[in-house]
Design a protein around this nucleic acid. Structure first.
Length: 466
RNA sequence: UCCCCAGUAGCUCAGUUGGUUAGAGCGGUGGACUGUUAAUCCAUGUGUCGUUGGUUCGAAUCCAACCUGGGGAGCCA
């Protein structure tokens, strides 16, 4: 007798008449006076639940089956049958139904088979995986992660596990979480009263990484095509629907590449993973299109079918100044674009993802490659309608003298960058890369509005439950 | 961190010119009916009205502070 997952039963992998065992959780139970009960069982293998027919001649029909409620766990032995009802091709004729776990006091089970708000579900992060929406998000998230790895693997990229603990406070990408084993109530002090980090675990100050980029550049300058895919931590006090304190980031880094090369890579990658989701998770995407966001499927198809619009920052400023739209903040060359400006460009001006390139030097990071005009750097942002910045990238400054000029101009501690500068001293090559916020990608694909609902256990300011 | 909004039954929400016993739908439970499928129909229970303090004869309702959540902004991915 075969153990089966719901997906295989529903997709016709088994023949009518086959006896299988399905294990899962009860979504709903309906009793019919025709002498049967209908029990919908989900096990996470696909969006749909399988309908189990439980006849009233089962020995535990009255004392157990009719008492099943949402959330009970069961093991069902049954024969695969063509469904006599509408809504599914196959169902299971139950021959033996074992209750593995009851729901104590169904009145208090938080996941009723009813619409819940996302905020409510978030309070039950340990039970929300059992809901349609969190199940669908989870499968799509997995599909995207696999597709990202597959995309890079097929292109000859190596996955580099950059460190999660870092001792350089010099990346400038945001506030850092401290990693320490020192006793906070009894800190070792130096003679001048400062904390003596020589006594700490690593013998110096340590933090959680805000980006693997600087580290992964070292591997790009040896293995040519590499990427990171791992957790990233920002201690920013950001309270928005698109920020997390702990999130996952994908950072490809390409040797011998310029900005346009990685802009093309970003476009190819997004199209590749969108295609994978539409093909592999059609069931979940249909649910998102039906319940969460009507455009969920058409938006992805639209991105796949069209070339990304590329635009220079300078041209974008001109468009924004002349578009006749009233903005709360004025647009002027040399300042960073506001959310409203980015939204206008992505949502109204092109209605699709847009790649903005060549930003003013002074609003971007020290490592970005100086353009010949002396005032811009080879940086790009990919802006997605509804989400905003989904990718940020740049060509990296490979000329040591130019890099040093920036480090000096910004008063950065040059000694901290000795290994980074070594890459420019010894066989330097042009190279470029970008960072993709994985949760922002999942939010964009599913249409789920809040980033806290596309990661299993969200961490944000004042919130790290579970 | 700043601006705005919200917090009432297990869930979603209605209810406030301050006034007796605070309501509906869904879920749960009991029953009816039915190859049903977020089934339907009938019956039924449920509340520190976010917390603390204040104003008042009287506060879910007005005021203050705080807590939590949401939307927007900044920071960014």
């Amino acid at each position: 007798m075969a153990v089966a997952v719901v997906k295989d039963v529903l997709s016709g992998k088994f023949s009518v008449g086959d006896t299988v065992v399905v294990r899962g959780w009860v979504r709903t139970r309906r009793d019919s006076k025709a002498g049967i009960s209908f029990i919908n069982i989900h096990d996470g293998s696909c969006f749909d639940a399988v309908q189990v027919i439980a006849p009233n001649d089962l020995p535990n029909y009255a004392n157990e089956i009719q008492k099943l409620t949402t959330g009970c766990s069961v093991a069902i032995t049954g024969t695969v049958a063509e469904s006599a009802g509408q809504g599914q091709d196959f169902e299971l004729q139950g021959t033996h139904i074992e209750v593995l776990g009851w729901v104590e006091d169904p009145d208090t089970y938080p996941m009723s088979p009813k619409r819940h708000s996302m905020e409510y579900l978030r309070e039950y992060a340990h039970l929300r995986p059992r809901t349609n929406i969190t199940g669908a998000v989870t499968r799509v998230r997995h599909c995207l992660a696999q597709a990202v790895h597959r995309f890079f693997h097929e292109r000859g990229f190596y996955w580099i596990s950059t460190p999660i603990i870092t001792t350089s406070d010099a990346e400038g990408a945001g506030e850092l979480f401290r990693v320490s084993t020192l006793d906070l109530m009894n800190l070792p002090k130096k003679e001048n009263g400062e904390v003596d980090f020589k006594e700490d675990f690593f013998g110096k100050e340590a933090f959680l990484t805000v980006s693997g980029q600087l580290n992964v550049e070292t591997y790009a300058c040896a293995l040519s095509n590499v990427y990171t895919f791992g957790p990233t931590f920002r201690a920013e006090n950001s309270n928005t629907s698109r920020h997390l304190a702990e999130f996952w980031m994908i950072e490809p880094e390409v040797a011998f590449a310029n900005l346009d090369d990685v802009a093309g890579l970003a476009e190819d990658m997004l199209k590749f993973v969108f295609k994978a989701v539409l093909e592999e998770r059609a069931d979940d995407m249909a649910f998102f299109a039906q319940r969460i966001d009507k455009e969920a499927v058409s938006r992805l198809q639209n991105v796949i079918d069209n070339d990304f619009v590329h635009m220079d920052y300078t041209d974008a400023v001109e468009i924004l100044q002349n578009c006749g739209e009233k903005f709360e903040y004025p647009v002027s060359w040399g300042t960073d674009l506001q959310s409203e400006h980015e939204r206008y460009l992505a949502e109204k001006h092109v209605g699709a993802p847009i790649i903005l390139k060549n930003y003013p030097r002074d609003i971007k990071a020290f490592y970005m490659r100086q353009n010949d005009d002396g005032k811009t750097v080879a940086a790009m942002d990919v802006l997605a309608p509804g989400i905003g910045e989904i990718i940020g990238g740049s060509a990296r400054e490979e000329r040591l003298d130019v890099l040093d000029d920036r480090i000096d101009a910004l008063n950065l501690p040059k000694e901290e960058y000795s290994w980074y500068r070594d890459l420019r001293k010894y066989g330097t090559v042009p190279h470029a890369g970008f960072g993709l916020g994985f949760e922002r990608l999942v939010a964009y694909v599913t249409g789920v509005q809040n980033i806290r609902d596309v990661i299993p256990f969200p961490r944000s300011p004042k919130s790290a439950e579970f």
